[in-house]
Computed example of a mutant assay.
Amino acid sequence: MDMVGGSAAPGQADDGDRLVGSDRVLAVLKELARHPDGVTLDELTRAIGSPKPTVHRALRSLRRAGLASQDARGHYLLGDEFLRMAFAHHEARPEHVRILPVLEALAERFGETTHYAVLDGREVVYRAKVDPPTGAARLTSTIGGRNPAHATGVGKLLLAHQLTTRDAVDAWVGDGLLERRTAHTVGTAAELHAALELIRARGYALDEEENEAGVGCLALPVYALSPSVPSGALSVSALTYRTPLPTLIDAVDEVRAVLGPLGSAGGSAA
């Protein structure tokens, strides 16, 4: 039984600052994940805070299971079996399935429709949709449906992460004007660039009746597949007579809280 003094080491159990048995094996596994280029036994020992023989025994258990391996330099890495299991699990749980409980919670909270959408060229595609549990008037959007990216909150949010310079916006817009779905839709490269800069500053996007009259939207990024690049965007889309856009803006921190790690760069739960 190994005693670890001071603050908890990475992956360490919290009860009594002790790291024993399966806790130690799991701590070693988690530490390996922090070193994609490999880590030495001495480095693992220091990080885990357990004696070298016990860390070595944990590594042997992980290697027998295929969850750890050792390269020609003697460095330890995550094993192929661990990667196989992780990717198999990931493919069985596509991101729109993982975001569904969040959509359901927000649809119930606001009594409005929630979406998860991804960017596909110049359009957004809706991968998931949850209608409010009550309320006669609902949006006509459908799963698999498309809308122009520049005319939607989710689309502009994702474009803001992709088109980070004026030159990039100009190239994306091209020689012509953008389709104005309503009188509020951005129609030029200059207007789109200004909108994307504002989105980056705020951390969220709005659809101020730009795609459909009478419908407003608050959109936030979702990091379901990568810790740095949004896999898609979540929106709360509201009939403005029922839920004015300022109401959604005032609740942006609440929406972020419901999203949890999926809404934060670096916090992907993939």
Results as ranks from 00 to 15, higher is better:
S141D: 12
A9M: 13
I99H: 05
H193S: 14
T40F: 08
A137I: 13
R138G: 00
R57C: 00
P101S: 13
D2Q: 08
L29N: 02
D170T: 14
R24Y: 01
L139M: 14
A58K: 02
V229G: 02
E95R: 14
E104C: 01
A9V: 07
E197C: 11
G187L: 02
A269L: 15
A194L: 08
A33M: 14
T54S: 15
R98N: 02
S264M: 13
E212W: 01
A27C: 07
H90T: 08
H35S: 13
H193E: 12
A205V: 12
V55R: 07
Y241C: 02
M3N: 09
C217D: 04
L106H: 10
V125W: 05
G232P: 10
H150T: 04
R122N: 09
G203F: 03
A117Y: 04
G121P: 12
G174Q: 10
G144Y: 03
V222D: 04
G145A: 09
A183W: 05
A68R: 06
P148F: 04
E210S: 10
V124G: 04
A86H: 10
L262G: 06
L220Q: 13
L225P: 00
L26R: 15
E31C: 13
L157R: 03
L67H: 11
S61A: 11
L234G: 07
R138H: 06
G21A: 14
L159V: 10
P244E: 13
S69D: 14
T240M: 12
V222K: 03
D207F: 03
T152L: 05
T164F: 03
I249G: 01
S7C: 03
G49A: 01
F87Y: 12
E104D: 13
L198I: 00
H89M: 11
E179Y: 00
E43Q: 15
E208R: 15
R46M: 04
L77M: 08
G266A: 02
G144Q: 07
I99G: 10
H161A: 11
T240R: 12
G260R: 03
V20C: 07
I249P: 03
E197N: 11
L19A: 01
L62E: 07
H56I: 00
G263D: 04
R98Q: 14
H35W: 12
G266N: 09
L26F: 12
E95T: 13
A265I: 00
G21W: 01
P230T: 08
A213D: 13
E43F: 04
L262C: 01
R84L: 14
R64S: 11
R122P: 04
G49R: 07
K129E: 03
L159S: 11
P10C: 13
V125R: 15
D253V: 06
L177D: 15
D120T: 14
G214Y: 07
S7P: 03
L163Q: 09
S22M: 13
G16N: 11
V236N: 07
L245D: 08
L29T: 08
G260S: 05
G144L: 07
G214D: 07
E191C: 05
L248M: 11
S226G: 02
I199W: 02
H193V: 00
S141P: 00
A171L: 12
R181V: 09
Y116S: 09
L83Y: 09
E31V: 15
K156M: 04
P148A: 06
H89I: 06
D2C: 04
T164C: 03
N211G: 15
T142G: 00
A149K: 02
P230E: 12
H150S: 06
G155P: 11
R122M: 08
R24P: 01
D71T: 12
